[in-house]
Design a binder for these strands. Structure first.
Lengths: 190, 190
DNA sequence: ATTATCTATAGATCTATAGATAATGC
DNA sequence: ATTATCTATAGATCTATAGATAATGC
């Protein structure tokens, strides 16, 4: 019954993957250690061989999820592509492997410093990505606009998920995407 | 020990006020019926005389909080004022009586339809308010831009709260506010 | 022999209910 | 008599720990 050292590491990774997905889908508070271990195909007592506590898992799973989210949006070529991907109905409806800020922002915000994982680095990376897309489009980057654009993406996704009128939800996604598309066609005003 | 009919109604209102504040500050899942009743100065057994269940309270408290949030931002005259107020350090640091979407959006999003309170109406009211401010400024309203602007406000606040680097948090608030201020000076492009 | 996992359980917390209490309201 | 509130507790759930188990790794 005892796995090899390598299998044990794989098990630890699977616990992180499972925790990240379940936390995004249901919220950190709503997911017990029991559910995470069950999702990873293990019994919950074994958890404490891999992590010191649920708090410990929370920080690691959040960082793990943000790494994955960065990769998921890494291959876009323009800001319009980023908006189309970030504000897709799929991203709205399947939070499990999407943006951590949009899924867990308020809940992470209540955790003590040092337990939020690499959230500042994640936001810095997203801002830098948008600046790079700006530079690729017209040779200049505008950090202020990058921050405002990122805010729009995050806010639109949060609102589209929260609202319980599907038509309003679709409108928020579609109109925000169109706003980005229209913005890209305008002459630079920065 | 039994209060008058009027006092009982006041007690019910105080339970709603307390629940709304505690939910915004700590999250719905993190606040028990016990803590709500204690905060309202009552014992937790008495709760079920006022509400059928915690789910019932959740929906009512969320609606109650969104009404209060609408009033809190009702007296602004321009979009710049709205951004200055919504993106103030005070609103970031004191979530208790602030915007419900920014504090509880992802958690509300996971609740079944019909238990999220009046969240769609709340978002519609916020969009309408921004359209009215646009019309007051230059005679036209642009719903698409209103949605994108509201998204920016919500997203910037969520990010500023989530990030654990105070400097980055301040930058997100300040730069997004400046973006709104700069935008107001430009000739209409809609 | 070491160690990753499992079984079993302790202790805390949370929702909800039952019955008692005591002052209001008819 | 009615009813808002309180006391006490049942039942479920959640975090964490202790000790047993059995296969790996030296």
């Amino acid at each position: 019954m005892r796995p090899t050292r390598e299998q044990a590491k794989e098990n630890r990774q699977r616990i992180l993957d499972t925790a990240a997905r379940l936390f995004h889908e249901n919220g950190i508070h709503a997911v017990g250690v029991d559910a995470v271990m069950k999702g990873a195909g293990l019994t919950h007592g074994g958890f404490y061989g891999h992590f010191k506590s649920k708090n410990d898992l929370t920080a690691e799973a959040a960082s793990h999820a943000m790494d994955a989210a960065l990769q998921a949006f890494a291959d876009v070529k323009t800001i319009g592509d980023l908006a189309a991907s970030y504000l897709s109905a799929e991203h709205r409806d399947i939070a499990g492997n999407g943006c951590t800020i949009a899924a867990l922002g308020p809940e992470l915000a209540r955790l003590p410093e040092g337990q939020r994982g690499t959230v500042s680095d994640y936001v810095r990376a997203q801002i830098a990505q948008i600046e790079a897309l700006q530079a690729a489009a017209d040779g200049k980057s505008d950090r202020r606009k990058a921050i405002a654009d990122l805010s729009s993406l995050v806010g639109a996704l949060v609102m589209a998920r929260t609202v319980d009128d599907p038509q309003l939800s679709d409108e928020i996604l579609t109109e925000t995407k169109r706003y980005f598309a229209a913005d890209a066609e305008k002459p630079t005003d920065s």
